[in-house]
Design a protein around this nucleic acid. Structure first.
Lengths: 158, 158
DNA sequence: AAAAAGTAGTTTCATTTGAAACTTTAATCC
DNA sequence: GGATTAAAGTTTCAAATGAAACTACTTTTT
């Protein structure tokens, strides 16, 4: 190998264009969306993202336990414990110790919790609709499938 | 309005299926990817995400200042200040106070910084390639355009 | 040209986060 | 059936984060 070639190879700097790097783009996008949603609605209802997710889940799945919520909401048990605590202190959620296992509690929205959820859902739905306003139904379906595939791949790589 | 109808309307609970809610999906996806990348490479090079972004940017844009980096890396000035501090303490980055404005410094990768970047880029690139391995070139192009559009829309909504 | 206002980057401080340790209860093992 | 191991949630503690205050300098105003 010639000296010239060796030098040129050492100097070769691979480069990476950050704004096109998928992990960066996804983080940036999800950050913008989360901040935007939090600014609009979390403040309005005094709700963290973890709390919002739990309330949304309990809306359609009343009686879930903390452990069951974890994978469905992608939250760890510490976050869930704190969120549940706050939600139950603010009277939006009720814990019912399980007959069969007293370490665990089935979680239910109270009337106040349901009322709040009924107010938030249209706002959340509307935000999502705005995000996708310029997408055709076909495009939405494609985006959906892309996200599912990326999710599965990322899961496999993790 | 009949009594029956009124009751049924009060009981009507709108519901939101969390796993299909775009903000949730994006946050989950970007979290999985970031954690996976961090586990693999950030540890390996003792590099936070902010540091990685700054190094990547300086690789192709030597001499940027902290203020210029902020929008390019989507980082706030506090994060940049800390990341730059750590990078310069570990000898990967060098600050050169600007002649014209002594509050500000042009930032450059040192030789060590460049060497490290040259090692990471192929790994990062490879990770992205794996994520997209099942996507055809056309699909990649579509994904790219979807992300750009979502980015622009989210920006407008924020 | 001194005073006021603004900017680049740093530091401080209070909050958020998550891993590890802990408590209580349940299941499994001699 | 008492001892051991495991599981559900909670608490603790240390690190990460980010808003606000601060420092050092520059620009604008009068």
């Amino acid at each position: 190998m010639s000296k010239v070639k060796a030098v040129s190879m050492n100097d070769m700097q691979p480069s990476l264009y950050l704004p096109r790097f998928l992990p960066y783009r996804l983080t940036k996008l999800s950050g913008m969306i989360s901040r935007s949603l939090a600014a609009k609605y979390s403040k309005m209802f005094d709700l963290t993202i973890a709390e919002w997710r739990i309330v949304a889940l309990l809306g359609s799945n009343p009686g879930l336990t903390a452990r069951e919520i974890a994978p469905l909401a992608s939250l760890d048990k510490v976050s869930i414990s704190r969120a549940v605590d706050r939600l139950s202190k603010s009277g939006r959620l009720e814990k019912r110790i399980l007959k069969g296992d007293r370490r665990s509690a089935a979680l239910y929205l109270t009337r106040a919790g349901k009322t709040m959820l009924a107010e938030i859902i249209p706002l959340a739905q509307n935000y999502e609709d705005q995000l996708l306003a310029e997408f055709s139904p076909d495009e939405i379906e494609m985006l959906d499938s892309f996200l599912n595939r990326l999710d599965a791949t990322a899961d496999a790589l993790g």
